[in-house]
């Protein structure tokens, strides 16, 4: 069953034609890899799926509802796009708490649990401005799943992570897949794609091509 569908999507972004009449079906409960060179449009594709930017032509449906018409942005999406986002003068826990307050549906314990899952200490007094890049990345991963989001859109989630953390996050993503969550990731590391993904698409010359050997 398709949870995300792109139909004849075309997009020009900041003067560059990134997609021409692209179709894509994302099934629930699988991990999809999107690969392509820098500037090929991976982040823009993710932003379109999240409803942050709209296609010039074509339609995007999430769970059967068109994004941008009846629904401005999809519910239940966890994202990492471009780079981690944070408030530098607050601790990691406070940052997640600020995001959680918006929907107000999870407890402090759940926030702490999410931090521990990615390998951060929820009680640490260290402010995020003093975090390493890898710690900021872990914080971004924690916010993406802490509210039990069922679709994870993760742009380069393994950036700046050490080998141990990469292994931990890979196992985490595979466990999410086993729970029936749907994941879209990009990675410049072929190994991440090979280990995690059920299906892989390459952005090539404004098209999405299926990659069979990865």
């Amino acid at each position: 069953m398709s949870i995300i569908t792109l139909k004849n999507v075309s997009k020009t972004y900041k003067g560059l034609t990134l997609f021409s009449n692209v179709d894509l079906n994302i099934d629930k409960g699988k991990i999809y890899g999107i690969v392509g060179p820098n500037g090929s449009g991976k982040s823009v594709l993710f932003k379109m799926i999240c409803g942050f930017v709209f296609p010039d032509e074509g339609n995007i449906f999430v769970e059967g509802t068109e994004i941008g018409k009846r629904k401005r942005f999809p519910d239940n999406f966890g994202i990492i796009i471009d780079r981690p986002g944070y408030i530098p003068n607050k601790t990691g826990f406070q940052n997640l708490k600020e995001l959680a307050l918006i929907k107000g549906k999870i407890s402090d314990e759940r926030i702490s649990e999410a931090m521990e899952i990615v390998g951060l200490q929820p009680n640490a007094k260290q402010k995020v401005k003093n975090y390493s890049l890898g710690m900021k990345q872990k914080l971004a991963i924690a916010q993406a799943f802490m509210e039990d989001q069922q679709v994870l859109i993760l742009d380069e989630p393994f950036n700046a992570l050490d080998a141990g953390s990469v292994d931990r996050i890979r196992r985490l993503l595979l466990s999410f897949k086993d729970e029936g969550r749907t994941i879209l990731i990009t990675s410049h590391n072929q190994e991440d794609i090979r280990v995690l993904c059920d299906n892989v698409y390459r952005i090539n010359d404004t098209q999405l091509e299926v990659v069979t050997n990865f």
Partner: peptide
């Protein structure tokens, strides 16, 4: 406060939670 959010990409991560 808003300046910090803008400069550090925080607002992007509010977007799946609130329009």
């Amino acid at each position: 406060l808003f300046l910090q959010e803008l400069r550090n990409n925080f607002v992007l991560y509010t977007r799946p939670r609130i329009p």
